[in-house]
Amino acid sequence: MNLIVDIEKKVGSFNLSAKFSSSSSKIGFFGHSGCGKTTLSSIIAGIIKPDKGTISIDDKILFSSEKKINVPTNKRNIAVVFQGAHLFPHLSVQENLKYGLKRRKNSKRNIDFQRLTETLNLSHLLDRKIQNLSGGEKQRIAIGRALLSSPDLIILDEPLTGLDHHLKSRIIQYLGEIFTTFSVPYIYISHSIKEMRIMTEESITFSNGSTTEILKTEDMARNLLKTAGASYKNILELTDPVKKGDLCEYNWHENRIITTEYSDYSRTLFELPSSGIIIFKNKPESASARNILEGTITDIFDVSNRVCLVLNINGGELIAQVVHSAVNEMNLKKGDRVSAVMKASSFTLI
């Protein structure tokens, strides 16, 4: 998918101007509330009409003030999942799921109902009324409903806001995978940098209602770290858990990682704070920490009174945070081979 946006819109005293293009299938809109990210997504979906500009997906022009084109929302093939699901209260789960499907021509339907309901674990709920469902179930139905309309693009507007922490982490573990499985591109809107990093490849940030820059999400997270000095957490996707006594061993880029937390899933997201990594120049002989991994320093940058080291460990990338005096004393520089030592308990489930 190739999305091109170049629009301007005045809403009251707020001026939104957005200009970017992206061919990523996982785009993020990042920013605090009121920055214009929801307005921009509504403009792309056709809910709000921009004052001028163009919007197109691949060869299809959705809006052009010059050519006087403004494709209505229902003809854009862009499904929106709002914060808080917004299921239709007078319809059953099944009827909700099939709402968009029924309005799509047979030849254009490319998502199988049964496969989707099984993937989203909704099969047992089909005949239920939506009133008695949990927040997580409702949100899964909203996502399923959007997918079943076989859209060219899905807009997910803060889909996890309002869900409790436990539920959020359960859903986000497989949310990205679902869209990849059914190969539907999406725009993910959030104010959470963590969700951005898990869900998106490229991100658009907003400042004072204008946006022109599109960055790799990981670069954006690091920029944020440089400017705001925010504490950075590494996000690792660990696979194939094996129980080892009361600990658990996972695979991560040809490395073995031992954690204190066991997960039932074959792939699990873990967080590791950058300050939780200790750097040794030589491999320590023995340590209480369960993980000692060797890697190369690929980049060094300052964050206020700390220094961040970007490490490449057998293809996996980690950021470790140390203090200036440590860098000077150890004479750390780009290209150095070092050992990164991490406690098993430093890894926490997302």
């Binding site: 809910i47 229902n74 929106v80 917004h86 239709f88 709402y99 309005r103 799509r104 959007a146 309309s149």
Partner: peptide, 27 residues
């Protein structure tokens, strides 16, 4: 009726009259 519910219906392919009959009227 939450307006986002109407927008959700439209984004799923329902035209204006369709939205009135399938969402607004029953609600």
């Amino acid at each position: 009726i939450d307006r986002n519910m109407i927008y959700a219906a439209k984004s799923l392919g329902a035209g204006s009259l369709d939205t009135v009959i399938s969402i607004v009227l029953p609600l």
